[in-house]
Design a protein around this nucleic acid. Structure first.
Lengths: 213, 213
DNA sequence: GTCTATACTTGGATAGAC
DNA sequence: GTCTATCCAAGTATAGAC
């Protein structure tokens, strides 16, 4: 058994040294060249290391790209979860969603997710892995929506699970469309609308949890 | 100038004979093998014709795939537009959306759109072409939403353009997610919710256009 | 318009030296 | 653990015979 080869699939040891460098290079390549452009050779060029190292450390290119996706998914989860859990009104959530979207857009995280989803569409095996990494986000939204809707009239009609799925689907769809035509104006406009409309939606919820000062 | 070569880019002559056969084969390949699996060779195998014909008739594989996308986009537009224009309440629209989604799902049209969007994400040039083919759908929804919202309280807050963009984005996002994990249960559940919730939304609109018998 | 043959390119992956 | 060299598969696209 080697010490950092790809066999240790038990996962989650903080990637050290070279392995981390490779994952970072893959991340950067996904951002700049897209999924289709993220070959082992291109990633190696990007990170100035030997192409063969990809296979030594990760076994396949696919596994490397998933490791890169894990990198961003974990980072984003750590960065946003606290503020998200803290938010207690629809308005705050709308504002947060808007902030997160543009922060992700600026540092390329939206790109990476979109690229990996695109890759997953054409490869069922990869697709399952990608969707598994989306699951925690759906659950996060579901929990929050659940507490917000609890006891309200809306809550008796709208299951949190559906609303959470719709939210992530919408986020992903906006990502895809903006990505396709390189135009962020429409996404901006829509997220601004969300911020404006949120207080009205909040008014339909039990006052205890509704709009705060 | 040849009679049916790919040079006549002025477009829209109804594809005849072999050219049509090739486009149909591309469509079928997109459905069964996905974007990544739709190479000139694979398409030719699917349609039992020579690989070189792809390049003679369409110039590049990309152009052929776009022609296949046009095929489904046009068919769907013709099939659904009349019923869509006729619908005059939120309830009818929700029911129609649900129907369309599952019809598309069953005959593979959702797949084709999802695959081409995925392909477009990784290739900017293709992406622009794909989004251009989505535009008519956004406009269709925008017109309908515009007439429905006109004069209502909601209409003074929600611009039709934003709502149309959100609708298509949501449709695409649901498509992508369902596609990724091969699970149609969540999409079903969400579309059912839409049908249940539609009458409530309709109640917020001017009564003249609201829920009909 | 259609076929065969082939040039050329890129990419995944491995063997084996160091 | 890293590098060089290489194999092999698959794909785009074109030339040229028919």
């Amino acid at each position: 058994m080697e010490s950092s080869g790809h066999k240790d699939a038990v996962a989650e040891e903080p990637l050290g040294g070279t392995k981390a460098r490779i994952a970072e290079a893959a991340l950067e390549t996904l951002k700049t060249r897209g999924f289709a452009g993220s070959s082992a050779r291109e990633i190696a060029r990007q990170g100035n290391f030997n192409q063969a190292l990809v296979f030594y450390h990760f076994g396949t290119v696919q596994k490397l790209l998933l490791a890169a996706l894990d990198l961003v998914s974990d980072r984003r989860m750590h960065a946003y979860q606290p503020a998200f859990e803290r938010a207690s009104s629809v308005s705050e959530l709308a504002a947060l969603a808007r902030e997160i979207y543009f922060e992700d857009l600026d540092n390329g995280y939206v790109t990476v997710l979109g690229e990996m989803v695109a890759g997953g569409v054409s490869d069922p095996e990869l697709g399952r892995e990608v969707v598994a990494r989306l699951e925690p986000w759906i659950e996060l939204v579901e929990r929050k929506v659940g507490t917000l809707l609890a006891g309200s009239l809306l809550g008796s009609i709208v299951p949190p699970r559906d609303l959470a799925f719709a939210t992530i689907a919408l986020y992903l769809g906006i990502d895809m469309l903006s990505h396709l035509d390189g135009d962020r104006a429409r996404a901006e406009s829509l997220l601004d609308l969300g911020v404006r409309a949120a207080p009205l939606l909040g008014a339909l919820l039990p006052s205890g949890r509704a709009e705060k000062p």
